[in-house]
Design a protein around this nucleic acid. Sequence first.
DNA 1: TCTGGGGTCCTAGGACCC
DNA 2: TCTGGGGTCCTAGGACCC
Length: 429
Amino acid sequence: MFALVDCNSFFASCEKVFRPDLANQPVAVLSNNDGCVVARSPEAKPLVPMQATLFSIRHLVQRGKLHVFSSNPVLYKDMSRRVIETLQHFSPEVEQYSIDEAFLGLHGFAHRDLTDYGQQIRATVQQWTGIPVSVGIASTKTLAKLAAHVAKRHLGCKGVLNFNALEEVDQVLAAIAVSEVWGIGRHLTAKLQAQGILTVLQLKQADAKRLKKQFGILVMRTVMELRGIACFPMEPVAAPKTMRIVSRSFGHVVTELSEIKEAVATYAARCAEKLRDDGLLAHQFAVAIRTSYYRPDNQYAAVRSVSLEPPTNDTATLIHAAMGLTTAAFKPGYDYLKAKVIATELTPADAVQGELFAAPTNTEKRDRLMTTIDALNRQLHPDAVKFGAMGLNPTWGLRSNYFSQRYTTHWDEIPTVQVWPLSQHCGCN
DNA sequence: TCTGGGGTCCTAGGACCC
DNA sequence: TCTGGGGTCCTAGGACCC
């Protein structure tokens, strides 16, 4: 048995935790660069579509009918950690699937009333973290995801649905579109629809062998999962990362190589930091730059990559490589909107394969420098110490006009509580 | 006007091995 | 004239997820 715990409107809920004044107000959270809506509170869902641009909803914001927030990843990551830690009280097997979802292994919990257990999970997460969640329970992960999907949308479920306690699961599956199934995306939906498979029930009853031939092993496994045969096991230990990407659109278009280089140096530094956090070294490193997708008259994209020998997570080395790659990729005369750096062929830092014929490299001093920089930046400010190539006054920076606070990770941004004099209280202490 | 960021997995096809 | 069988590894591209 599996439970899927899914945080409702996660980013919007995180913002609301620290703004009790917005309790029943419509709240939307924007993507990086304040580009478009990526999360909506229940009150905001009727007002704004997902991915609506800020421009298209500005009138609501100005009239005070909608509260928007810029993306605050540090806050969301920390709130996610709190939710996961709470869930670990309910099962020894917790698999964090995404920033706002986790699977719980419920093997050996069969003697319990699992619907009731789901309610306990929900109430505890709400009380300990302030985040509302939906819980789906079923005999496979795919079914648990669908159960959570239904639990979130039907008030009668009170946030929890256990398919195993339900008589007519097929009736429920017949009412859900096939596109809602985990693993069935846009393209597969269109192809399945063309064959008359419109609902989850129809997919469950389809010819699994034929679908395997047509769409591959994943679709067949999904069909088996819908039939209650578990094909996707719990994976409580996160697999090591295979790639690290830092990718950002600029605040506005950039035409000069020097400006793009500053941005790419900044992304490379961030990427090196991530690798050090992971304890990984990159063997392969790439830079990609491109113009806006939405300007057909101004299209250019280029990727350049290089092998790093020996593999490294040293900021200076990555910036140096990135500068060469950026120069190679750059072509004058275009309006650039986005750059990214990609580190691949990652190996654990403590298990490096040495080179037989190369002179031995001693990176101990560099490692100590990086450790010190990381410590300073963590303690003081994300770029208290930075490399000159990253520039002093970035002109390409992100827009972020509706930023809240890093309430839970920075002492000077911690929420404050107004304390009223005791005499104004209603007599209790 | 503006339209995000960061990842994983599978498949087909070619090259190559004994 | 007809020319096996069984396998691995790599890459690019496509699909999916949140």
